[in-house]
């Protein structure tokens, strides 16, 4: 079955849909976690520590966290690989462009590929900035995420990168969530409006929720 799925364009779209939904689920949890920054360094840092102790004593320290990280890496890799292969196929299928050009499809639909690339680059920067601290501005403090977040959003480029990425994320989810539903065969004429509404609501909620943090730092609400 795995072979049939991976060899088919419809199958690869299924891989994209499922991996996309896994990442989406993670983002909802991540966004809710981020909002704890508005309740002060104590609560935020405690939450960050709790993430490492989830599942104890059954799980050892950081086991759950690493399990989630592995699942996410697999999802990102599956999503990106199928996107790359499907895009290659799409471009090959339409080598000659029309002379008479027309603006086609919605903005969210047209920006899926570039938006995806922006998000991939953002993820790399984001991990190097706030997980490993490699490219962090100022001194990165292990175990003090509150201060690290404030540091990042105190630089103009930190804000710019983050805001651009979150807007790309919103657009990506707007078309991606609805598309995933169609790929998995759960869409229908009657459900179409509901699915589009949920896609837009998720896109708006996640973008707004994530953007609240840099806006909070910029306005001095979080310092």
């Amino acid at each position: 079955m795995a072979r049939t799925v991976w060899d088919s364009s419809v199958g690869k779209k299924t891989v994209m849909a499922v991996s996309g939904l896994i990442m989406l689920l993670y983002l909802v949890v991540h966004m809710i976690g981020n909002l704890k920054i508005f309740f002060g360094p104590g609560e935020f840092n405690h939450y960050a520590h709790w993430l490492r102790t989830v599942g104890e004593p059954f799980m050892h320290y950081e086991w759950t966290l690493w399990l989630i990280r592995v699942a996410l890496v697999v999802a990102v890799f599956a999503h990106a690989t199928s996107a790359y292969q499907l895009s290659r196929r799409d471009i090959r299928a339409r080598p000659n462009k029309y002379v008479h050009k027309k603006a086609r499809a919605s903005y969210a639909t047209r920006t899926m590929r570039w938006g995806g690339i922006i998000l991939a680059l953002f993820i790399v920067w984001h991990i190097l900035d706030l997980t490993t601290g490699t490219v962090h501005s100022g001194g990165f403090q292990e175990g003090h995420p509150y201060q690290n977040v404030v540091d990042t959003f105190s630089t103009w480029y930190g804000n710019v990168i983050y805001i651009v990425a979150m807007l790309a994320l919103g657009l990506h989810i707007r078309h991606g969530f609805w598309s995933a539903a169609q790929t998995l065969g759960v869409g229908s004429r009657n459900r179409d409006r509901a699915l589009k509404t949920v896609a837009n609501a998720l896109a708006l909620l996640l973008t707004a929720g994530f953007l609240a943090v840099p806006v909070g730092v910029m306005t001095g609400l979080v310092s």
Binding site: S9, V10, K12, K13, L86, R89, D90, I91, R92, A93, R94, R104, A105, T109, R110, M112, H175, W178, S179, Q182, T183
Partner: peptide, 10 residues
């Protein structure tokens, strides 16, 4: 050699 669907709706 047809492409895949990106649900553009065209």
């Amino acid at each position: 050699g047809f492409g895949g669907c990106t649900l553009a709706g065209e």
